[in-house]
């Protein structure tokens, strides 16, 4: 048995510190890019005038003031809530439906053109309709976000269910697994990476959808702030709102990353990287 003990265990520690260096390196590069962006922004605002492009310094101070007096947070909260609730309401049926339809290929085939149509149709064009139906409050935005997220996640979950390895299912059945065990232990975990690909793509759309719906018609939210500021020729206000939107995207992206790392620990690192870069 002694010869077996020498198989590779975990990667040597050296590569860990290498990875840390890489991380630091990419962080410092990111800071440089950020500084460059601010420099270009500042140059533009000097060249075109602060009236058209609010200067970064003004934007930052306004943003800070907005945080302190709570007005930015007030609007950000609504946008965030619309995006998150809509995301969840859209993603849950999108994940469950392909599982439910797994045994009904005919129903799946009948639904297919409608799903493709729903996927391809510009959902933002539905915003005015949803505002008519659900009013200018939070509900119309949630509906828009949910429907956008639904179609994106549905197709990735469907791909995940279809990518099933039948040999794994046969192995499980020989070992005594029933229909439910197969769904729970094989089909579902196998589809999770696909679902995450969909969630990752859908996430910015959910925030973008909420903001655009607010721009069309709302009385609060960051999209409303954008609209209000623009009407008052306040470009600085527009930029403040956009920065808040960007921060929300970052936070949600971090949450998806975190969940994915927790749930997909079993994947080889290169796979996960490939997935993330797509």
């Amino acid at each position: 048995m002694a010869s077996l003990e020498h198989s590779p265990a975990s990667p040597p520690a050296a590569s860990d510190s290498g990875r840390l260096l890489d991380r630091l390196r990419s962080r410092s590069d990111q800071v440089i890019v950020l500084v460059l962006l601010f420099a270009i922004w500042q140059a533009l605002s000097l060249w075109l005038g602060e009236y058209w492009v609010g200067s970064p310094w003004l934007v930052v101070t306004r943003f800070y003031a907005g945080l302190v007096d709570g007005s930015v947070l007030y609007h950000a909260y609504y946008t965030f809530a619309e995006a998150v609730i809509g995301f969840v309401l859209g993603a849950i049926p999108a994940v469950l439906l392909p599982f439910a339809l797994r045994r009904l290929p005919i129903v799946t085939a009948v639904l297919d053109p409608f799903m493709v149509g729903g996927y391809g149709a510009p959902k933002l064009a539905l915003a005015p309709l949803f505002i008519l139906w659900f009013g200018i409050g939070i509900e119309s935005k949630i509906a828009l976000v949910a429907i956008t997220v639904f179609f994106i996640v549905y197709f990735s979950a469907l791909a995940g269910v279809r990518a099933l390895d039948t040999r794994l299912v046969q192995m499980a059945q020989v070992a005594g697994a029933n229909e439910r065990d197969v769904a729970r232990h094989i089909i579902f975990p196998g589809a999770v990476p696909y679902v995450f690909t969909g969630l990752r793509i859908a996430m910015p759309y959910s925030i973008g959808g909420a903001v655009v719906a607010e721009i069309i018609s709302a009385n609060r939210g960051l999209g409303y702030l954008v609209q209000l500021s623009a009407m008052n020729f306040d470009t600085t206000g527009v930029f403040v709102a956009l920065i808040a939107v960007t921060l929300i995207v970052f936070i949600c992206n971090g949450a998806v990353d975190f969940a994915e790392r927790r749930l997909l620990r079993w994947r080889p690192a290169s796979d996960a990287k490939l997935q993330a870069s797509v």
Partner: peptide
């Protein structure tokens, strides 16, 4: 009837 298949068919997530 147990079956040790030619491919290992381990579940990658376990």
């Amino acid at each position: 009837i147990g079956y040790v298949t030619q491919e290992d068919n381990l579940l990658p997530w376990r």
